[in-house]
Design a protein around this nucleic acid. Structure first.
Ligand SMILES: [Mn+2]
Ligand SMILES: [Mn+2]
Ligand SMILES: [Mn+2]
Ligand SMILES: [Mn+2]
Lengths: 227, 227
DNA sequence: ACTATTTTTTAGACTTATCTAAATTACGGG
DNA sequence: CCCGTAATTTAGATAAGTCTAAAAAATAGT
Protein backbone atom coordinates (compact mmCIF):
# COMPACT_ATOMS: atom_id res chain seq x y z
CA UNK A 1 0.00 0.00 0.00
CA UNK A 2 1.92 2.99 -1.27
CA UNK A 3 -0.43 5.49 -2.76
CA UNK A 4 -4.09 6.06 -3.01
CA UNK A 5 -6.51 7.53 -5.46
CA UNK A 6 -8.63 9.65 -3.15
CA UNK A 7 -10.20 11.56 -6.01
CA UNK A 8 -12.63 8.79 -7.00
CA UNK A 9 -16.07 9.28 -5.54
CA UNK A 10 -17.28 5.81 -6.47
CA UNK A 11 -16.32 2.78 -4.42
CA UNK A 12 -15.18 -0.50 -5.91
CA UNK A 13 -17.05 -3.77 -5.36
CA UNK A 14 -14.45 -4.74 -2.80
CA UNK A 15 -14.67 -1.46 -0.94
CA UNK A 16 -18.46 -1.74 -0.85
CA UNK A 17 -18.23 -5.25 0.56
CA UNK A 18 -15.84 -4.10 3.27
CA UNK A 19 -18.14 -1.20 4.16
CA UNK A 20 -21.12 -3.55 4.34
CA UNK A 21 -19.23 -5.95 6.58
CA UNK A 22 -18.05 -3.15 8.88
CA UNK A 23 -21.58 -1.80 9.06
CA UNK A 24 -22.96 -5.18 10.08
CA UNK A 25 -20.23 -5.74 12.67
CA UNK A 26 -20.76 -2.24 14.09
CA UNK A 27 -24.13 -3.27 15.44
CA UNK A 28 -22.45 -5.82 17.69
CA UNK A 29 -19.37 -3.72 18.36
CA UNK A 30 -20.32 -0.03 18.16
CA UNK A 31 -17.11 1.25 19.77
CA UNK A 32 -14.91 -0.13 17.01
CA UNK A 33 -14.68 -3.16 14.77
CA UNK A 34 -11.47 -5.18 15.00
CA UNK A 35 -9.29 -6.15 12.08
CA UNK A 36 -9.79 -9.82 12.84
CA UNK A 37 -13.56 -9.46 12.95
CA UNK A 38 -13.55 -7.91 9.49
CA UNK A 39 -11.19 -10.57 8.19
CA UNK A 40 -13.56 -13.23 9.50
CA UNK A 41 -16.61 -11.66 7.91
CA UNK A 42 -14.88 -11.07 4.57
CA UNK A 43 -13.20 -14.47 4.52
CA UNK A 44 -9.85 -12.84 3.99
CA UNK A 45 -6.65 -12.30 5.99
CA UNK A 46 -6.02 -9.67 8.63
CA UNK A 47 -3.15 -8.20 6.63
CA UNK A 48 -5.44 -7.61 3.67
CA UNK A 49 -7.90 -5.90 5.99
CA UNK A 50 -5.22 -3.57 7.32
CA UNK A 51 -4.40 -2.48 3.77
CA UNK A 52 -8.04 -1.90 2.94
CA UNK A 53 -8.97 0.02 6.08
CA UNK A 54 -6.07 2.38 5.37
CA UNK A 55 -7.57 3.06 1.98
CA UNK A 56 -11.10 3.50 3.32
CA UNK A 57 -9.74 5.88 5.95
CA UNK A 58 -8.02 7.96 3.25
CA UNK A 59 -11.34 8.16 1.45
CA UNK A 60 -12.92 9.40 4.71
CA UNK A 61 -15.29 6.44 4.84
CA UNK A 62 -14.07 5.11 8.18
CA UNK A 63 -12.22 6.34 11.27
CA UNK A 64 -9.05 4.37 11.74
CA UNK A 65 -6.13 4.63 14.10
CA UNK A 66 -3.57 1.85 14.30
CA UNK A 67 -4.51 -0.98 16.64
CA UNK A 68 -7.73 0.84 17.58
CA UNK A 69 -10.34 -0.82 15.39
CA UNK A 70 -12.54 1.08 12.95
CA UNK A 71 -15.87 2.90 12.94
CA UNK A 72 -17.83 4.17 9.95
CA UNK A 73 -17.97 7.89 9.27
CA UNK A 74 -21.35 9.34 8.28
CA UNK A 75 -20.18 9.18 4.65
CA UNK A 76 -19.19 5.54 5.11
CA UNK A 77 -22.45 4.67 6.84
CA UNK A 78 -24.42 6.19 3.98
CA UNK A 79 -22.41 4.19 1.46
CA UNK A 80 -22.82 0.95 3.42
CA UNK A 81 -26.55 1.40 3.94
CA UNK A 82 -27.02 2.17 0.25
CA UNK A 83 -25.52 -1.20 -0.61
CA UNK A 84 -27.69 -2.95 1.98
CA UNK A 85 -30.76 -1.19 0.57
CA UNK A 86 -29.99 -2.39 -2.94
CA UNK A 87 -29.24 -5.92 -1.74
CA UNK A 88 -32.56 -6.24 0.04
CA UNK A 89 -34.63 -4.61 -2.70
CA UNK A 90 -33.19 -7.00 -5.26
CA UNK A 91 -33.94 -9.93 -2.95
CA UNK A 92 -37.57 -8.82 -2.84
CA UNK A 93 -37.64 -8.62 -6.63
CA UNK A 94 -36.12 -12.08 -7.02
CA UNK A 95 -38.61 -13.69 -4.64
CA UNK A 96 -41.80 -11.71 -5.29
CA UNK A 97 -41.48 -11.18 -9.03
CA UNK A 98 -39.22 -13.89 -10.37
CA UNK A 99 -40.45 -16.61 -8.03
CA UNK A 100 -37.12 -17.56 -6.46
CA UNK A 101 -37.17 -19.35 -3.12
CA UNK A 102 -35.89 -17.31 -0.16
CA UNK A 103 -32.92 -19.61 0.28
CA UNK A 104 -31.42 -18.97 -3.16
CA UNK A 105 -31.48 -15.20 -3.60
CA UNK A 106 -28.66 -14.02 -1.37
CA UNK A 107 -25.82 -14.88 -3.73
CA UNK A 108 -27.46 -13.20 -6.70
CA UNK A 109 -28.30 -10.12 -4.64
CA UNK A 110 -24.66 -10.07 -3.60
CA UNK A 111 -23.88 -9.24 -7.23
CA UNK A 112 -26.87 -7.00 -7.98
CA UNK A 113 -26.20 -4.82 -4.93
CA UNK A 114 -23.16 -3.34 -6.69
CA UNK A 115 -24.98 -2.03 -9.77
CA UNK A 116 -24.52 1.74 -9.82
CA UNK A 117 -27.57 3.84 -10.67
CA UNK A 118 -29.55 6.09 -8.36
CA UNK A 119 -32.42 6.09 -10.81
CA UNK A 120 -32.54 2.31 -10.89
CA UNK A 121 -32.91 2.02 -7.12
CA UNK A 122 -35.68 4.60 -7.03
CA UNK A 123 -37.63 2.92 -9.82
CA UNK A 124 -37.08 -0.60 -8.48
CA UNK A 125 -38.25 0.48 -5.03
CA UNK A 126 -41.42 2.00 -6.51
CA UNK A 127 -41.97 -1.02 -8.79
CA UNK A 128 -41.86 -3.37 -5.81
CA UNK A 129 -44.34 -1.19 -3.86
CA UNK A 130 -41.78 0.35 -1.50
CA UNK A 131 -41.36 -2.82 0.56
CA UNK A 132 -40.32 -2.52 4.21
CA UNK A 133 -38.73 -5.94 4.67
CA UNK A 134 -36.73 -8.35 2.56
CA UNK A 135 -37.61 -12.06 2.18
CA UNK A 136 -35.70 -12.88 5.36
CA UNK A 137 -37.44 -10.25 7.46
CA UNK A 138 -34.55 -7.79 7.38
CA UNK A 139 -35.61 -4.13 7.24
CA UNK A 140 -34.97 -2.27 3.99
CA UNK A 141 -33.31 1.12 4.62
CA UNK A 142 -35.25 4.05 3.17
CA UNK A 143 -33.77 6.35 0.55
CA UNK A 144 -32.38 8.63 3.26
CA UNK A 145 -30.48 5.77 4.86
CA UNK A 146 -32.73 5.24 7.89
CA UNK A 147 -33.23 1.70 9.13
CA UNK A 148 -35.85 0.66 11.65
CA UNK A 149 -34.69 -2.49 13.37
CA UNK A 150 -37.61 -4.53 14.60
CA UNK A 151 -35.80 -7.72 15.41
CA UNK A 152 -35.21 -7.83 19.11
CA UNK A 153 -36.58 -11.01 20.61
CA UNK A 154 -35.66 -14.52 19.56
CA UNK A 155 -37.82 -17.62 19.71
CA UNK A 156 -35.38 -18.88 22.37
CA UNK A 157 -36.47 -16.02 24.66
CA UNK A 158 -40.02 -17.38 24.95
CA UNK A 159 -41.41 -19.36 27.91
CA UNK A 160 -43.74 -22.34 27.80
CA UNK A 161 -47.22 -21.59 26.45
CA UNK A 162 -46.23 -18.21 25.02
CA UNK A 163 -47.36 -17.40 21.47
CA UNK A 164 -45.63 -15.31 18.77
CA UNK A 165 -45.20 -14.77 15.03
CA UNK A 166 -41.97 -15.42 13.11
CA UNK A 167 -40.73 -12.13 11.64
CA UNK A 168 -37.13 -12.80 10.66
CA UNK A 169 -34.07 -15.01 10.60
CA UNK A 170 -30.65 -14.21 12.00
CA UNK A 171 -28.77 -16.74 9.87
CA UNK A 172 -29.60 -16.43 6.15
CA UNK A 173 -27.61 -19.46 5.03
CA UNK A 174 -29.20 -21.67 2.45
CA UNK A 175 -29.03 -24.75 4.67
CA UNK A 176 -30.78 -23.06 7.60
CA UNK A 177 -33.52 -21.59 5.38
CA UNK A 178 -34.15 -24.94 3.74
CA UNK A 179 -34.39 -26.56 7.13
CA UNK A 180 -36.99 -24.00 8.22
CA UNK A 181 -38.95 -24.42 5.02
CA UNK A 182 -39.28 -28.16 5.60
CA UNK A 183 -40.99 -27.45 8.92
CA UNK A 184 -43.14 -24.67 7.42
CA UNK A 185 -41.36 -22.37 9.82
CA UNK A 186 -41.53 -19.41 7.46
CA UNK A 187 -42.06 -15.67 7.93
CA UNK A 188 -45.55 -14.99 9.21
CA UNK A 189 -46.00 -18.42 10.77
CA UNK A 190 -47.38 -18.46 14.30
CA UNK A 191 -45.58 -20.42 16.97
CA UNK A 192 -46.64 -21.62 20.41
CA UNK A 193 -44.11 -23.00 22.85
CA UNK A 194 -45.27 -26.43 23.96
CA UNK A 195 -42.31 -27.51 26.07
CA UNK A 196 -38.71 -26.54 26.80
CA UNK A 197 -36.30 -29.39 27.50
CA UNK A 198 -34.10 -28.33 30.35
CA UNK A 199 -31.20 -30.58 29.37
CA UNK A 200 -30.35 -29.13 25.93
CA UNK A 201 -32.72 -26.14 25.76
CA UNK A 202 -34.42 -27.68 22.75
CA UNK A 203 -38.05 -26.69 22.27
CA UNK A 204 -41.21 -28.42 21.30
CA UNK A 205 -43.37 -25.93 19.44
CA UNK A 206 -46.64 -25.84 17.51
CA UNK A 207 -46.25 -24.12 14.14
CA UNK A 208 -49.40 -22.47 12.78
CA UNK A 209 -51.55 -24.54 15.17
CA UNK A 210 -50.07 -27.78 13.88
CA UNK A 211 -48.81 -30.73 15.90
CA UNK A 212 -45.81 -30.13 18.20
CA UNK A 213 -42.38 -30.47 16.61
CA UNK A 214 -38.98 -30.29 18.20
CA UNK A 215 -36.37 -27.70 17.31
CA UNK A 216 -32.85 -27.30 18.63
CA UNK A 217 -31.66 -24.32 20.64
CA UNK A 218 -29.56 -23.26 17.63
CA UNK A 219 -32.69 -22.95 15.52
CA UNK A 220 -34.59 -21.07 18.23
CA UNK A 221 -31.74 -18.62 18.70
CA UNK A 222 -31.67 -17.80 14.98
CA UNK A 223 -35.37 -16.98 14.67
CA UNK A 224 -36.72 -13.53 15.43
CA UNK A 225 -40.32 -13.28 16.61
CA UNK A 226 -42.91 -10.70 17.53
CA UNK A 227 -45.24 -11.41 20.46
CA UNK B 1 1.65 -11.29 -19.39
CA UNK B 2 3.59 -14.14 -17.85
CA UNK B 3 1.22 -16.75 -16.64
CA UNK B 4 -2.41 -17.53 -16.83
CA UNK B 5 -5.02 -19.21 -14.73
CA UNK B 6 -6.68 -21.45 -17.31
CA UNK B 7 -8.47 -23.49 -14.69
CA UNK B 8 -11.23 -20.93 -14.06
CA UNK B 9 -14.38 -21.63 -16.00
CA UNK B 10 -15.94 -18.25 -15.28
CA UNK B 11 -14.89 -15.17 -17.19
CA UNK B 12 -14.18 -11.84 -15.56
CA UNK B 13 -16.12 -8.68 -16.38
CA UNK B 14 -13.25 -7.53 -18.53
CA UNK B 15 -13.00 -10.81 -20.39
CA UNK B 16 -16.75 -10.76 -21.03
CA UNK B 17 -16.54 -7.24 -22.39
CA UNK B 18 -13.72 -8.21 -24.74
CA UNK B 19 -15.68 -11.24 -25.95
CA UNK B 20 -18.74 -9.09 -26.56
CA UNK B 21 -16.70 -6.56 -28.52
CA UNK B 22 -15.04 -9.27 -30.62
CA UNK B 23 -18.44 -10.83 -31.29
CA UNK B 24 -19.84 -7.53 -32.50
CA UNK B 25 -16.82 -6.80 -34.67
CA UNK B 26 -16.92 -10.32 -36.14
CA UNK B 27 -20.13 -9.48 -37.96
CA UNK B 28 -18.31 -6.81 -39.96
CA UNK B 29 -15.05 -8.74 -40.19
CA UNK B 30 -15.78 -12.48 -40.10
CA UNK B 31 -12.29 -13.53 -41.24
CA UNK B 32 -10.59 -12.02 -38.19
CA UNK B 33 -10.87 -9.00 -35.94
CA UNK B 34 -7.79 -6.79 -35.71
CA UNK B 35 -6.10 -5.71 -32.51
CA UNK B 36 -6.71 -2.07 -33.36
CA UNK B 37 -10.41 -2.66 -34.01
CA UNK B 38 -10.81 -4.23 -30.57
CA UNK B 39 -8.82 -1.43 -28.97
CA UNK B 40 -11.13 1.08 -30.61
CA UNK B 41 -14.28 -0.70 -29.48
CA UNK B 42 -13.02 -1.17 -25.93
CA UNK B 43 -11.58 2.34 -25.66
CA UNK B 44 -8.23 0.91 -24.63
CA UNK B 45 -4.74 0.59 -26.10
CA UNK B 46 -3.59 -1.99 -28.65
CA UNK B 47 -0.95 -3.28 -26.25
CA UNK B 48 -3.60 -4.03 -23.65
CA UNK B 49 -5.59 -5.89 -26.29
CA UNK B 50 -2.61 -8.05 -27.22
CA UNK B 51 -2.24 -9.10 -23.59
CA UNK B 52 -5.92 -9.91 -23.28
CA UNK B 53 -6.26 -11.88 -26.52
CA UNK B 54 -3.37 -14.05 -25.40
CA UNK B 55 -5.28 -14.85 -22.26
CA UNK B 56 -8.55 -15.50 -24.09
CA UNK B 57 -6.69 -17.78 -26.50
CA UNK B 58 -5.24 -19.75 -23.58
CA UNK B 59 -8.77 -20.17 -22.27
CA UNK B 60 -9.79 -21.49 -25.70
CA UNK B 61 -12.30 -18.69 -26.18
CA UNK B 62 -10.70 -17.27 -29.32
CA UNK B 63 -8.36 -18.36 -32.11
CA UNK B 64 -5.28 -16.18 -32.12
CA UNK B 65 -2.03 -16.25 -34.02
CA UNK B 66 0.35 -13.31 -33.88
CA UNK B 67 -0.40 -10.55 -36.37
CA UNK B 68 -3.36 -12.55 -37.73
CA UNK B 69 -6.36 -11.06 -35.95
CA UNK B 70 -8.75 -13.12 -33.83
CA UNK B 71 -11.93 -15.14 -34.28
CA UNK B 72 -14.22 -16.56 -31.62
CA UNK B 73 -14.23 -20.28 -30.96
CA UNK B 74 -17.61 -21.92 -30.45
CA UNK B 75 -16.99 -21.73 -26.72
CA UNK B 76 -16.17 -18.03 -27.04
CA UNK B 77 -19.20 -17.34 -29.22
CA UNK B 78 -21.47 -19.00 -26.65
CA UNK B 79 -19.96 -16.90 -23.89
CA UNK B 80 -20.29 -13.68 -25.88
CA UNK B 81 -23.88 -14.35 -26.93
CA UNK B 82 -24.81 -15.19 -23.36
CA UNK B 83 -23.67 -11.72 -22.29
CA UNK B 84 -25.55 -10.09 -25.18
CA UNK B 85 -28.69 -12.03 -24.21
CA UNK B 86 -28.49 -10.82 -20.64
CA UNK B 87 -27.77 -7.25 -21.72
CA UNK B 88 -30.84 -7.11 -23.94
CA UNK B 89 -33.17 -8.88 -21.53
CA UNK B 90 -32.25 -6.41 -18.80
CA UNK B 91 -32.85 -3.51 -21.20
CA UNK B 92 -36.35 -4.84 -21.83
CA UNK B 93 -36.94 -5.06 -18.08
CA UNK B 94 -35.71 -1.53 -17.49
CA UNK B 95 -37.93 -0.04 -20.20
CA UNK B 96 -41.05 -2.21 -20.00
CA UNK B 97 -41.24 -2.74 -16.26
CA UNK B 98 -39.33 0.08 -14.62
CA UNK B 99 -40.39 2.76 -17.12
CA UNK B 100 -36.93 3.90 -18.21
CA UNK B 101 -36.61 5.71 -21.52
CA UNK B 102 -34.81 3.75 -24.26
CA UNK B 103 -31.93 6.21 -24.28
CA UNK B 104 -30.91 5.64 -20.66
CA UNK B 105 -30.81 1.89 -20.22
CA UNK B 106 -27.64 0.89 -22.03
CA UNK B 107 -25.22 1.90 -19.29
CA UNK B 108 -27.17 0.11 -16.59
CA UNK B 109 -27.51 -3.02 -18.74
CA UNK B 110 -23.76 -2.84 -19.24
CA UNK B 111 -23.47 -3.62 -15.53
CA UNK B 112 -26.38 -6.05 -15.20
CA UNK B 113 -25.16 -8.19 -18.11
CA UNK B 114 -22.32 -9.48 -15.94
CA UNK B 115 -24.46 -10.90 -13.16
CA UNK B 116 -23.82 -14.65 -13.03
CA UNK B 117 -26.83 -16.93 -12.61
CA UNK B 118 -28.31 -19.29 -15.16
CA UNK B 119 -31.50 -19.46 -13.15
CA UNK B 120 -31.84 -15.69 -13.09
CA UNK B 121 -31.71 -15.42 -16.89
CA UNK B 122 -34.29 -18.16 -17.35
CA UNK B 123 -36.69 -16.59 -14.88
CA UNK B 124 -36.17 -13.05 -16.12
CA UNK B 125 -36.79 -14.17 -19.71
CA UNK B 126 -40.03 -15.86 -18.68
CA UNK B 127 -41.09 -12.92 -16.52
CA UNK B 128 -40.69 -10.56 -19.47
CA UNK B 129 -42.73 -12.85 -21.74
CA UNK B 130 -39.78 -14.25 -23.72
CA UNK B 131 -39.24 -11.03 -25.69
CA UNK B 132 -37.68 -11.26 -29.16
CA UNK B 133 -36.24 -7.75 -29.40
CA UNK B 134 -34.71 -5.25 -27.04
CA UNK B 135 -35.88 -1.61 -26.80
CA UNK B 136 -33.59 -0.64 -29.70
CA UNK B 137 -34.85 -3.37 -32.01
CA UNK B 138 -31.86 -5.65 -31.51
CA UNK B 139 -32.70 -9.36 -31.50
CA UNK B 140 -32.42 -11.22 -28.19
CA UNK B 141 -30.50 -14.48 -28.56
CA UNK B 142 -32.43 -17.54 -27.39
CA UNK B 143 -31.21 -19.77 -24.57
CA UNK B 144 -29.31 -21.95 -27.07
CA UNK B 145 -27.37 -18.95 -28.38
CA UNK B 146 -29.18 -18.54 -31.70
CA UNK B 147 -29.72 -15.03 -33.01
CA UNK B 148 -32.04 -14.14 -35.86
CA UNK B 149 -30.86 -10.92 -37.41
CA UNK B 150 -33.73 -9.07 -39.00
CA UNK B 151 -32.03 -5.78 -39.60
CA UNK B 152 -30.98 -5.66 -43.19
CA UNK B 153 -32.33 -2.56 -44.91
CA UNK B 154 -31.76 1.00 -43.77
CA UNK B 155 -34.04 3.97 -44.21
CA UNK B 156 -31.39 5.37 -46.54
CA UNK B 157 -32.00 2.47 -48.93
CA UNK B 158 -35.55 3.61 -49.68
CA UNK B 159 -36.66 5.52 -52.80
CA UNK B 160 -39.13 8.39 -53.01
CA UNK B 161 -42.72 7.44 -52.11
CA UNK B 162 -41.75 4.12 -50.57
CA UNK B 163 -43.27 3.24 -47.20
CA UNK B 164 -41.83 1.23 -44.29
CA UNK B 165 -41.83 0.71 -40.53
CA UNK B 166 -38.92 1.53 -38.21
CA UNK B 167 -37.69 -1.68 -36.56
CA UNK B 168 -34.31 -0.80 -35.16
CA UNK B 169 -31.41 1.58 -34.66
CA UNK B 170 -27.79 0.98 -35.58
CA UNK B 171 -26.37 3.61 -33.23
CA UNK B 172 -27.69 3.25 -29.67
CA UNK B 173 -26.05 6.38 -28.31
CA UNK B 174 -28.09 8.48 -25.97
CA UNK B 175 -27.81 11.57 -28.17
CA UNK B 176 -29.05 9.78 -31.29
CA UNK B 177 -31.97 8.17 -29.46
CA UNK B 178 -33.00 11.46 -27.92
CA UNK B 179 -32.87 13.09 -31.34
CA UNK B 180 -35.15 10.38 -32.74
CA UNK B 181 -37.54 10.68 -29.83
CA UNK B 182 -38.00 14.40 -30.46
CA UNK B 183 -39.21 13.60 -33.99
CA UNK B 184 -41.37 10.71 -32.76
CA UNK B 185 -39.16 8.50 -34.89
CA UNK B 186 -39.46 5.52 -32.56
CA UNK B 187 -39.70 1.76 -33.08
CA UNK B 188 -42.95 0.89 -34.81
CA UNK B 189 -43.40 4.31 -36.44
CA UNK B 190 -44.32 4.26 -40.12
CA UNK B 191 -42.28 6.34 -42.53
CA UNK B 192 -42.95 7.49 -46.10
CA UNK B 193 -40.18 9.02 -48.18
CA UNK B 194 -41.39 12.38 -49.42
CA UNK B 195 -38.23 13.63 -51.10
CA UNK B 196 -34.53 12.85 -51.36
CA UNK B 197 -32.20 15.82 -51.74
CA UNK B 198 -29.58 14.90 -54.28
CA UNK B 199 -26.97 17.31 -52.93
CA UNK B 200 -26.50 15.88 -49.41
CA UNK B 201 -28.72 12.77 -49.57
CA UNK B 202 -30.86 14.22 -46.80
CA UNK B 203 -34.46 13.02 -46.80
CA UNK B 204 -37.82 14.59 -46.25
CA UNK B 205 -40.08 11.97 -44.67
CA UNK B 206 -43.58 11.70 -43.22
CA UNK B 207 -43.54 10.01 -39.82
CA UNK B 208 -46.74 8.16 -38.87
CA UNK B 209 -48.68 10.11 -41.54
CA UNK B 210 -47.56 13.45 -40.09
CA UNK B 211 -46.20 16.47 -41.91
CA UNK B 212 -42.91 16.05 -43.80
CA UNK B 213 -39.73 16.57 -41.76
CA UNK B 214 -36.14 16.59 -42.90
CA UNK B 215 -33.54 14.12 -41.67
CA UNK B 216 -29.85 13.93 -42.52
CA UNK B 217 -28.24 11.01 -44.34
CA UNK B 218 -26.49 10.09 -41.10
CA UNK B 219 -29.85 9.58 -39.40
CA UNK B 220 -31.27 7.62 -42.34
CA UNK B 221 -28.24 5.32 -42.39
CA UNK B 222 -28.62 4.50 -38.70
CA UNK B 223 -32.28 3.48 -38.90
CA UNK B 224 -33.32 -0.05 -39.79
CA UNK B 225 -36.71 -0.50 -41.44
CA UNK B 226 -39.02 -3.25 -42.65
CA UNK B 227 -40.97 -2.66 -45.86
C1' DA C 1 12.79 -5.04 -54.48
C1' DC C 2 13.23 -1.42 -51.22
C1' DT C 3 11.74 1.96 -48.38
C1' DA C 4 8.16 4.34 -45.52
C1' DT C 5 4.24 3.86 -42.89
C1' DT C 6 1.06 1.44 -40.20
C1' DT C 7 -0.06 -2.34 -37.26
C1' DT C 8 1.09 -5.32 -33.79
C1' DT C 9 3.82 -7.04 -30.21
C1' DT C 10 7.18 -6.71 -26.37
C1' DA C 11 9.39 -4.66 -22.33
C1' DG C 12 8.92 -2.44 -18.26
C1' DA C 13 6.10 0.05 -15.02
C1' DC C 14 1.86 1.04 -12.25
C1' DT C 15 -2.62 0.10 -9.54
C1' DT C 16 -5.73 -2.76 -6.85
C1' DA C 17 -6.37 -6.46 -4.09
C1' DT C 18 -4.64 -10.32 -2.28
C1' DC C 19 -1.31 -13.54 0.28
C1' DT C 20 2.68 -15.40 3.57
C1' DA C 21 6.06 -14.58 6.83
C1' DA C 22 8.15 -11.55 9.93
C1' DA C 23 8.04 -7.69 13.02
C1' DT C 24 5.29 -4.73 16.29
C1' DT C 25 2.11 -3.59 19.58
C1' DA C 26 -1.36 -4.60 23.00
C1' DC C 27 -3.00 -7.11 26.82
C1' DG C 28 -3.87 -10.43 30.68
C1' DG C 29 -1.91 -13.19 34.57
C1' DG C 30 1.26 -13.69 37.86
C1' DC D 1 6.11 -4.60 36.45
C1' DC D 2 7.36 -8.38 33.34
C1' DC D 3 6.43 -11.93 30.07
C1' DG D 4 3.96 -14.79 26.96
C1' DT D 5 0.37 -14.84 23.85
C1' DA D 6 -2.84 -12.81 20.80
C1' DA D 7 -3.89 -9.17 17.64
C1' DT D 8 -2.27 -6.11 14.36
C1' DT D 9 0.73 -4.12 11.16
C1' DT D 10 4.69 -4.19 7.84
C1' DA D 11 7.52 -6.12 4.17
C1' DG D 12 7.78 -8.32 0.12
C1' DA D 13 5.55 -11.17 -3.48
C1' DT D 14 1.81 -12.36 -6.82
C1' DA D 15 -2.00 -11.81 -10.27
C1' DA D 16 -5.09 -9.06 -13.26
C1' DG D 17 -5.49 -5.35 -16.07
C1' DT D 18 -3.79 -1.22 -17.74
C1' DC D 19 -0.33 2.19 -19.79
C1' DT D 20 3.92 4.31 -22.48
C1' DA D 21 7.78 3.71 -25.21
C1' DA D 22 10.41 0.89 -28.10
C1' DA D 23 11.03 -3.09 -31.17
C1' DA D 24 9.37 -6.13 -34.72
C1' DA D 25 6.38 -7.49 -38.39
C1' DA D 26 3.24 -6.54 -42.06
C1' DT D 27 1.67 -3.63 -45.74
C1' DA D 28 1.82 -0.22 -49.29
C1' DG D 29 3.97 2.94 -52.70
C1' DT D 30 7.18 3.58 -55.95
MN1 LIG E 1 -29.04 -11.41 1.56
MN1 LIG F 1 -21.49 -7.84 -2.31
MN1 LIG G 1 -27.43 -1.74 -24.99
MN1 LIG H 1 -20.30 -4.85 -20.05
Amino acid sequence: MYFCNVKTDRNSFTEENYLKAIHKLSRINPKGVSTNAIAGAMETKASSVTDMVKKLALKMLINYKKYQGVTLTEKGRKAAVSVVRKHRLWEVFLVDNLGFKWDSVHEIAEQLEHVQSEELVIRLDRYLGIPQYDPHGDPIPDSDGNITHHKDTCLSDLKVNQVAVVVGVKDSSSSFLQHLEKMKLVLGASVKVDEIVDFDKSMSICISDGLPVSISEAVAKNLYIKR
